[in-house]
Simulated assay, not measured.
Amino acid sequence: MKTAVLIPCYNEELTIKKVVTDFKRELPHADIYVYDNNSTDNSYKIAKESGAIVKKEYRQGKGNVVRSMFRDIDADCYIMVDGDDTYGVEAASEIEKLVLSGKADMVIGNRLSGKYFEENKRRFHNTGNKLVRKAINILFKSNLGDIMTGMRGFSYRFAKSYPISSQEFEIETEMTIFSLNNNFLIEEVQVEYRDRIEGSESKLNTYRDGFKVLSLILSLFRDTRPLFFFSLATLVLLLIAAIYFLPIFVNYLSTGYVEKIPTLIMASTVVIIAVVIFFSGVVLHVLKKQHQQRFEQFLNMVEMKKRELENHR
């Protein structure tokens, strides 16, 4: 059984050597891959000298790096971790065991159950993590402890079926929603988190990347649960129409006259729009069910490909 450790890397010359050597010690049988994403420092050279298999990804952004990793590398277990040495490697063996035993298609390295909020000095990042976690758990009826962690494990089936659309750091959120929506097996393990060492700078922008993550959650909620999403939109429009229509109707009952004709026309138009939106949701719901059926067939093909690779090895 082959395990691959995947390390996206952008300007991490201060920490990349330690990350590689720690994983070589913890998982000596694993192949360590570092994908350098246009670093302007010595990250590429240091990673290569540390014994990693180093490749370049010229399209900027973590999502682009992970896309290339999943396409290029065949393994039974993938363990992805950031190159900034903020995650302890002690949980790697447990992550590997869960994936190789078939108990998980995605293993989440849960930072938030440990000392994350003490170690992470960026106050708004803590708030953002809590907000995103709560939003996804409510919208997708889950109970996950950490949504945006950078340390995860994946099965072959997940890696080869995951259609990556995010280009940057919102990919962690996209992975989680993809797993929940497609009924993949998810497990969580606690991982040690420590803040970056002095001189190592985060690539995240609190406000810009936070807005991207929230926008992604909304768009994926619309795409994965269209009937619910468009039903909510319909309900909101009907409430707005009712607010404007009821005073006109009450006045008609008491006087026998219809006043504020333009307002009545506007309310009627909103009702028509609401009905159209609702039936759009119904149509998209049917299309989504058909897509899920095709996706299950695709997963069967992925499983067949995996067996062929195992027989070849």
Rank of each mutant, 00 (worst) to 15 (best):
Thr3Ala: 12
Val5Arg: 05
Val5Gly: 10
Val5Leu: 02
Ile7Cys: 13
Ile7Ser: 12
Pro8Val: 05
Cys9Ile: 08
Leu14Gln: 14
Thr15Trp: 04
Ile16Gln: 07
Val19Thr: 08
Val20Ile: 06
Thr21Lys: 14
Phe23Leu: 05
Arg25Thr: 04
Glu26Trp: 01
Pro28His: 01
Ala30His: 00
Ala30Cys: 02
Ala30Arg: 00
Asp31Val: 13
Asp31Pro: 00
Tyr33Met: 10
Ser39Val: 11
Ile46Leu: 15
Glu49Phe: 01
Ile53Arg: 09
Lys55Val: 08
Glu57Gln: 15
Gly61Asn: 04
Gly61Ser: 04
Gly61Val: 06
Lys62Asp: 01
Asn64Arg: 14
Val66Cys: 04
Val66Thr: 07
Ser68Gly: 00
Phe70Ala: 05
Arg71Leu: 15
Asp72His: 12
Ile73Tyr: 00
Cys77Leu: 08
Tyr78Trp: 00
Asp82Asn: 15
Asp82Phe: 10
Val89Ser: 15
Glu94Thr: 14
Leu98His: 13
Val99Ala: 06
Val99Leu: 11
Val99Phe: 08
Gly102Tyr: 08
Lys103Trp: 12
Val107Phe: 02
Gly114Lys: 14
Tyr116Met: 09
Phe117His: 00
Asn120Lys: 13
Lys121Cys: 05
Arg123Trp: 14
His125Pro: 01
Asn126Leu: 03
Gly128Thr: 05
Lys130Ala: 14
Leu131Cys: 05
Val132Leu: 13
Arg133Gly: 03
Lys134Glu: 15
Ala135Trp: 05
Ile136Arg: 02
Ile138Lys: 06
Lys141Gly: 00
Ser142Ile: 09
Leu144Asp: 08
Asp146Cys: 09
Asp146Gln: 02
Ile147Ala: 11
Met148Thr: 15
Thr149Ala: 07
Gly153Ile: 12
Gly153Gln: 12
Phe154Leu: 03
Tyr156Leu: 05
Arg157His: 02
Ala159Thr: 05
Lys160His: 10
Tyr162Gln: 05
Ser166Pro: 01
Phe169Asn: 13
Phe169Cys: 09
Thr173Ser: 08
Ile177Ser: 00
Ile177Phe: 03
Phe178Leu: 12
Phe178Thr: 11
Leu180Gly: 07
Asn181Ile: 01
Asn182Tyr: 07
Phe184His: 09
Ile186Leu: 13
Glu187Leu: 02
Glu192Asn: 10
Glu192Ile: 08
Arg194Lys: 14
Arg196Gly: 01
Ile197Gly: 09
Gly199Arg: 06
Glu201Ser: 00
Ser202Asn: 07
Asn205Gly: 07
Arg208Trp: 04
Gly210Ser: 08
Val213Tyr: 12
Ser215Phe: 08
Leu218Met: 01
Phe221Val: 03
Arg222His: 06
Arg222Ala: 13
Thr224Val: 02
Phe229Ser: 01
Val236Thr: 13
Leu237Phe: 11
Ile248Leu: 14
Phe249Thr: 12
Leu253Ile: 11
Leu253Val: 09
Ser254Gln: 10
Thr255His: 05
Val258Gln: 07
Pro262Asp: 04
Ile265Thr: 06
Ala267Tyr: 06
Ser268Asp: 01
Thr269Pro: 05
Val271Met: 11
Ile273His: 05
Ala274Thr: 03
Val282Met: 02
Val283Met: 12
Val286Arg: 00
Lys289Phe: 08
His291Thr: 07
His291Asn: 04
Gln292Met: 10
Arg294Pro: 01
Met301Lys: 11
Met301Arg: 01
Val302His: 03
Glu303Phe: 02
Lys306Ala: 14
Lys306Gly: 11
Lys306Ser: 14
Glu308Pro: 02
His312Cys: 03
